Amino acid sequence: MTAAPGTYESVSALVRRETSMVYDAGKEYLVEARLRPLASAVGCTVDEYVARLPVDPAERRKAVDALTINETSWFRDHAPYQAFTESMLPALLEERAITRRLRIWSAACSSGQEAYSIAMLLDQHLPAGWSYEIVASDVSTAMLERVTAGRYSAVEVNRGLPATHLVRYFERAGNEWQVVPQLRERVSTRHLNLAAPFLGLGTFDVVLLRNVLIYFDHATKYDILRRMRPTVGTNGYLLLGSSETTLDAPPEVADLWTREAIGRVQVLRPAPPTNGTRSLT
């Protein structure tokens, strides 16, 4: 980063304070690349822009949105979606045969590709008479606006989206592609910092918390996993990223979950309660 010494440290402290995410040394180039357009828009250097953030709430919100990790694609890594379709969904159809309703949480949803990928699979595989809701949450308000709009560039729809799905689930919107209304109406958004309490979310049959825990320190990661336990319904599923695990968690967190292999995917299931279990909230 070519900015003055101390600028990167100020930005790192801001991101950690606002989102609990950790920007380690070596990401200076990424920070400058994401803040430079915002600084140019208000006619100042990156150094001047960072100095302005403590006293400018509007620009601070823009900066946090820009610095939030937003890497995503359609059906990312493929294997979790295959496990969902072939194993998790059939099991849930048996478990929820009375209510015939599923709730899915896409935590740290970024621009919504994960949530809409699941929506496409449910549209294809959910039997008639069933309903579903997908809650997409993120700390970035800009990302949540994108999820609600469901609009993506040509470059974005080419990142993992099968051509048949583009034809079936998207409509032209100028130079972009927009998710069809019948899927958009199934996806609701929620502004949420994972490091803060999960208030009013209810319980879910599947929670996707993929490729985000790696950006938190150990204490925050373990606290998130602890507070996730009440959000996953009976016989539900929690999916982490391929490099994320509870194996290194302290017993009071690891014991809340049981690990289960579905093909190449490791999923977490709520462990049965035991006598003397402490409050999870």
Rank of each mutant, 00 (worst) to 15 (best):
H78G: 13
V64D: 09
L92N: 03
F75V: 00
F84D: 07
L93N: 10
P80L: 00
E86K: 13
E71S: 04
P80E: 04
A66V: 08
L67W: 01
S87T: 15
R61W: 10
S73H: 10
E94A: 13
A79C: 09
P57D: 05
Q82I: 15
A83M: 03
D56N: 04
T85S: 14
W74F: 02
L92Q: 07
H78D: 15
T85Y: 11
A66Q: 04
P80I: 01
T85G: 13
L92M: 10
L92H: 05
D56P: 01
E86N: 13
Y81I: 05
A58R: 13
A63H: 04
M88K: 04
P90G: 07
K62H: 15
D56V: 03
Q82Y: 13
W74C: 01
A83C: 07
E86A: 14
R76F: 00
D77Q: 01
A63G: 05
D77I: 01
R60E: 09
K62L: 15
P57W: 03
N70Q: 14
Q82K: 14
E71Y: 06
I69Y: 05
R60F: 09
T68K: 04
R76Y: 02
E86G: 12
M88C: 06
E95H: 11
E95D: 13
L67A: 03
Q82T: 15
D77C: 00
A63R: 03
E95I: 12
R61N: 12
E59S: 05
A83R: 05
D56L: 01
D56K: 01
L93R: 11
A58I: 13
D77H: 01
L89P: 08
Q82G: 15
D65I: 08
L92Y: 04
R61Y: 11
T85R: 14
I69Q: 04
H78P: 13
T68G: 05
F75T: 00
V64M: 09
E59K: 04
R60Q: 10
A79L: 09
